[in-house]
């Protein structure tokens, strides 16, 4: 699952994840989406850029 808050600064970032994911899928450039969503600092941005979603894989083995 995507972290609720940024590890470094503590900003609540998970609420933007679903929109970000959808827009990346639709072909938008990640950097521009993050500017648009108001994720300014690089500490928050790296979490979006590097996150790998594993919850769907894990739930198969529940």
């Amino acid at each position: 699952m995507f972290p609720i808050r940024c590890f470094t600064c503590g900003k609540v970032i998970s609420r933007y994840w679903e929109e970000y994911k959808q827009r990346v899928k639709d072909g938008e450039e990640p950097g521009k989406i993050l500017n648009d969503l108001g994720i300014e600092r690089y500490c928050c941005r790296r979490i979006f850029l590097t996150h790998v979603e594993t919850i769907d894989i894990l739930s198969r083995y529940g």
Binding site: M1, F2, I4, V12, S14, R15, E18, D56, S59, R60
Partner: peptide, 15 residues
Amino acid sequence: PSFPDIPIVKLADGQ
């Protein structure tokens, strides 16, 4: 909660 749209956990069918 200050924001109602923070994902907590994604549940699969039956969880």
